[in-house]
């Protein structure tokens, strides 16, 4: 049971960061990003390659990972914010797949990423921190859980401050009425780009912790399914609410990992994995049909057609 709780909290923390990034894209800017896995993958791989191939210190690699994800965010957002909402969704889905395929088999890139065999040996620095901090009594997973949740809370604080700042109020204004903000002389495109880049950086940070949770990363860990999980979390928690992604993530993983309690006499672990993906699909459908604003969201804020 303790094992279940810790595994839920580790995944929930990582995906709370990812979903908070998506929340900035969708909940606060109205950009329908279905390829959040691209930023997640770029963050994970940037950190892993810098640490294990170039021997960078962990903190610098983490900062570089966030920066790389933010740069990709700007590159995607630059042309994409002109598109109709559902077309943007497809475009970003394709961007996620391009990232995965490039990491898997692009000549030049695979020399660094190891292609399909993946990359390992990037997490010693992180788990070595336990000795430095005198926390040897914690297991590696417990240490990771604590670190992730400290970061989740810090990010929550930063995002709250930002959303309540004049910058955040303009962002909300754009979501409610873009033309009005334009008439007030606000550079709508610049605000959207900043929010998109910030969200992408958070997704990159989530990718760093995702990599630390695995002893090696391969491109197959970055399927479009990751973006779908982030969406389910937003759908559960509610977009445009600051606590929504955190609460949604904990509920999602508590439910998702609960299928491990299915006795193996009932069904094989493979079938249980299929069953839980069926549940993910059903959850999306039920939330869209019954409560599109999520558990914590404000229905009025989010039922508008988010096109621009």
């Amino acid at each position: 049971m303790t094992g279940y709780i810790i595994s839920v909290l580790v995944s929930a923390g990582i995906f709370a960061l990812l979903a908070q990034g998506l929340n900035l894209h969708w909940g606060y800017t109205g950009l329908l990003n279905f390829g959040v896995v691209a930023f997640f993958a770029v963050g994970a791989y940037t950190m892993a390659v810098l640490v294990s191939v170039f021997d960078w210190p962990l903190w610098a690699a983490m900062a570089a990972a966030m920066l790389a994800a933010a740069v990709l965010g700007v590159l995607v957002a630059l042309p994409a914010i002109r598109l109709r909402s559902d077309y943007l969704a497809i475009t970003t889905l394709a961007v996620g797949e391009i990232c995965r395929i490039v990491l898997h088999s692009s000549p030049g890139v695979v020399d660094l990423t190891g292609g399909p065999s993946g990359i390992r040996g990037y997490s010693h620095d992180f788990f070595g921190l336990r000795e430095t901090l005198g926390l040897q009594w914690m297991t590696g997973l417990e240490f990771l859980m604590a670190a992730v949740w400290i970061v989740v809370l810090l990010v929550l604080l930063v995002v709250t401050v930002m959303i309540r700042s004049p910058w955040g109020r303009v962002l909300k204004g754009i979501r409610e009425d873009e033309d009005a903000m334009r008439a007030l002389g606000k550079n709508v495109v610049a605000y959207k780009m900043q929010s998109f880049a910030f969200g992408a950086a958070l997704a990159g940070l989530a990718g760093v912790f995702f990599a630390l949770n695995l002893s090696s990363i391969t491109p197959e860990a970055f399927l479009p399914m990751i973006s779908i999980y982030a969406w389910v979390i937003i759908l559960i928690g509610g977009g445009g609410s600051l606590l929504g992604p955190v609460v949604g993530s904990v509920l999602f993983w508590a439910l998702f990992n609960a299928t491990t309690f299915i006795p193996s006499e009932w069904m094989s672990s493979q079938d249980a994995a299929y069953l839980r993906l069926i549940l993910v699909g059903l959850l999306i459908m039920v939330m869209v049909l019954l409560r599109p604003q999520g558990l914590l969201g404000n229905r009025k804020e989010l039922l508008r057609e988010s096109r621009h």
Partner: peptide, 9 residues
């Protein structure tokens, strides 16, 4: 989104 859910199911 609804069709994404359906696709997974």
């Amino acid at each position: 989104l609804l069709s994404v859910g359906l696709a997974y199911v």
